[in-house]
């Protein structure tokens, strides 16, 4: 028998009134996986999470947990805990009481509760905060307490709904690393919802890109970035240049009235395709080595690189380069075959 997945979502659909928020979604989540649901607002990612948590019931389809159908089971009977957007800590309880909330319901002994809460506070780097008032804590600290409150119950799966959304950039980066570490040390499945593609790429084992209630692509962060399956994924994950092209034959693609060598194959002869080229993959070269010539329209300094727009005959390229060229200068562009990514057009 194949290994049982931690969670299987089978033909999941959800309607709010006439709105189809989830459209026949299928997904499995493995044990100890850090899986991210990524997409713009309204793509159905939070709804998916709420269905897994038991806060919404699917209109159609099943949620299977370790091989057992748990569709319709209320949240308090699921071995799943959630870190809510804006934390949802109980303001009338102190830090200790917040973390102990779930343990008290499970009727654990006072000693055990005390021991576990102390351990958790150490895990989230807030040892000694037991007696503190929730409202006296900073956003980052509240965030950690929310994670501790969920993890102390030793769930099989932890759901996180944009948990870092309310934090400032620096704190967010720190928490990303910490969360990833925590997930590795406690060894449980994390299902993480975010609209921040960078966050998704940094932390996840698997990224699920969603749009309009449908899964657009499932893959590792590297796959998703390097091999986007369609225009939506290419545009949503990072910046990209997307051009209309024609696949002449295997390893030969035609765009901007020129033939380029690529590494893609298996398309029909003269099939219309989308060609994706990442801004950092366009090299600025001397005229004799160039495949295309263009004029720099504007330049922005971004610290690590310059961000330029370069106009060639009928396309304005987004280019990230460490070479500085003044606006108005005439430059050569080159793209190596490995960096040309060809996608089938969406029907």
């Amino acid at each position: 028998m194949a290994k049982v997945h931690t969670i299987d979502l089978i033909n999941l659909s959800k309607k709010f009134g006439e709105d189809l928020v989830l459209d026949n979604m299928n997904l499995y989540i493995r044990q100890n996986e850090f899986l991210t649901l990524l997409g713009p607002s309204g793509c159905g990612k939070t709804t998916t999470l709420r269905i897994i948590g038991g806060f919404e019931n699917p209109t159609e389809g099943k949620v299977v947990f370790e091989g057992n159908d748990i569709t319709g089971l209320p949240p308090y009977l699921r071995q799943i805990n959630t870190v809510f957007q804006r934390y949802a800590l109980f303001p009338h309880l102190n830090v200790f009481e917040n973390i102990a909330f779930g343990l008290k319901i499970k009727k654990k002994s006072n000693e055990e509760i005390k021991k576990k809460v102390t351990q958790m506070l150490e895990l989230v780097n807030l040892a000694g905060f037991e007696k503190r008032n929730i409202e006296s804590l900073s956003g980052g600290q509240q965030q950690r307490i929310a994670i501790a409150r969920a993890l102390v119950n030793e769930p099989k799966v932890l759901l996180l709904d944009e948990p870092l959304g309310a934090l400032d950039l620096k704190l967010r980066k720190e928490m990303q690393i910490e969360l990833k570490k925590m997930q590795q040390s406690v060894g449980i499945t994390f299902i993480y919802v975010t609209h921040d593609q960078e966050e998704a790429l940094t932390m996840s084992d698997t990224v699920v890109v969603m749009d309009k209630g449908k899964i657009q692509q499932i893959g590792t962060p590297i796959d998703i970035y390097n091999e986007p399956q369609n225009r939506f994924v290419a545009q949503f994950i990072g910046e990209s240049n997307i051009l209309d092209g024609i696949m002449e034959k295997d390893f030969k693609v035609w765009f901007l009235s020129k033939e380029f060598i690529c590494v893609d194959k298996g398309f029909d002869k003269d099939e219309k395709v989308d060609v994706v080229i990442r801004p950092e993959d366009v090299e600025i070269v001397e005229e004799d080595k160039a495949q295309l010539m263009g004029i720099v329209k504007n330049v922005l300094f971004k610290g690590v690189h310059y961000e330029m727009e370069v106009q060639t005959n009928d396309y304005t390229w987004k280019i990230h380069s460490t070479i500085m060229k003044d606006a108005g200068s005439y430059v050569g562009l080159r793209i190596v075959p490995d960096n040309i990514h060809v996608m089938r057009k969406e029907k």
Partner: peptide, 27 residues
């Protein structure tokens, strides 16, 4: 009230009645 408070209580294993008693009513 933060609308997720009741859900948070349920999530932590509270029955609806327990959530009303221990979370909603104090709020």
């Amino acid at each position: 009230m933060n609308k997720h408070l009741a859900e948070a209580a349920l999530d932590l294993g509270a029955t609806p009645f327990y959530a009303i008693r221990k979370v909603i009513i104090p709020q």
